[in-house]
Design a binder for these strands. Structure first.
Lengths: 209, 209
DNA sequence: TATCTTCCGATTGTCAACAATACGCTCCTG
DNA sequence: CAGGAGCGTATTGTTGACAATCGGAAGATA
């Protein structure tokens, strides 16, 4: 059900600014207001809606600017940390599971199935983060990722499926090799991708100086 | 009520690993399970508890490592961005409000009232983030900050109150001057403070290279 | 016409009872 | 005594009814 609401927002069935009314949704989904309430709170924590007391939840927009200058840098922090920690903790089974997700991605790319690729992408990264066994990192990840995904699917900002697959293949290869420096390089290239048509990151570069 | 539970955790009345039972809490606070449930979800999103289906909420620990290598770097990203955006958006009233919080901090430091200082500290930073008018930045901030605060009060990792006050005074001064570079320098020094006795940040420095 | 006040409908917030689930304990079996 | 099946209890998940609150519309007043 949560997943249903999420996709309604991402596919644009609910427009930014639109109000989501608990009673209407619960009726539509044949459930009571309680679970709907919880789902809306979850969406709020994923940054897809904001809820205003006694006014309800409103679909939130995510700007190029915040994605580029806040969410993606945070993602880079989270994953750089996780991938390093995971390197020492991942079992053979974990690597096998990564391989499986890579395979699903390949298969999805062959069929030009965006959704399949995106979902395998998510599972790939979440597996690594889970393997790092750092609860806060995982928790923040789960709040950051939906916004980034929403931004990319909502505005069609995904690159060619093939390059996504290739990047993950190289990422997995680098992890298997145990070469941390290489892995981090690949990871950074993978995450910190400039978005076509988005404003350049002028003015905030100093913050890294 | 939420604030009550939060402080129970931060002051250590609830130990990490301890289970929080909805029924018990609702009885203790003379309310029903509904609001308690929501409060626990909120705490979960603030990273103070984890909740397991049909098992309930468990108080979560925050490690030196995650604070240093994940939460604080994220905070730096968030605030570097916010402070820059706020610089162009803050009204005289906003600056006056910052001055007021600074004054409260000074007064709290005089009386050695840690809580008063911490609360004014929070309001100071949140005012700037609010002034930047970036909803996602604020939302992520509200999920990150409670963990950092919890870590500092739980393990007594606060420095002398006077230096906290001094840093905010300089921060405000830098903001008023409009010198962005200086402001960011002060901000970084303020946030990215090495914690005594914590493991050094070895091994992850590369992720910034 | 502009503005203030009052009320009403829409919507969220709270509550208590009931349903579903998971864990651990007992008891059975080998 | 070891291991597993089945039950009972503790706890969360769900539901529908009721209370509180908000925003705006209608009407009164200058």
């Amino acid at each position: 059900m949560l997943e249903h609401l999420r996709s309604e927002i991402m596919t644009g069935r609910y427009e930014p600014g639109e109000r989501l009314i608990e009673a209407a949704i619960s009726e539509e989904l044949a459930t009571s207001r309680g679970p709907v309430r919880e789902a809306l709170r979850q969406l709020e924590h994923e940054g897809l809606v904001v809820s205003i007391p006694y006014r309800g939840a409103v679909v939130l927009e995510v700007s190029d600017e915040e994605v580029q200058e806040v969410l993606i840098p945070i993602r880079l922090t989270l994953e750089s940390f996780s991938f390093q920690k995971a390197l020492e903790l991942m079992s053979d089974d974990d690597f096998a599971e990564l391989g499986k997700q890579l395979w699903i991605m390949e298969e999805g790319a062959r069929r030009s199935d965006l959704q399949q690729v995106v979902e395998a992408d998510l599972r790939f990264h979440e597996l690594v983060i889970a393997a790092s066994r750092r609860p806060h990192t995982m928790q923040v990840w789960r709040s950051i990722w939906p916004r980034i995904r929403n931004y990319f699917v909502r505005y069609g900002r995904f690159r060619e499926l093939d390059s996504i697959v290739t990047e993950h293949r190289e990422l997995l290869e680098a992890m298997r090799s145990g070469d941390r420096k290489w892995m981090l390089e690949v990871l950074e290239r993978h995450i910190d991708v400039p978005v076509p048509g988005a404003p350049e990151r002028a003015g905030t570069a100093e913050s890294k100086a």
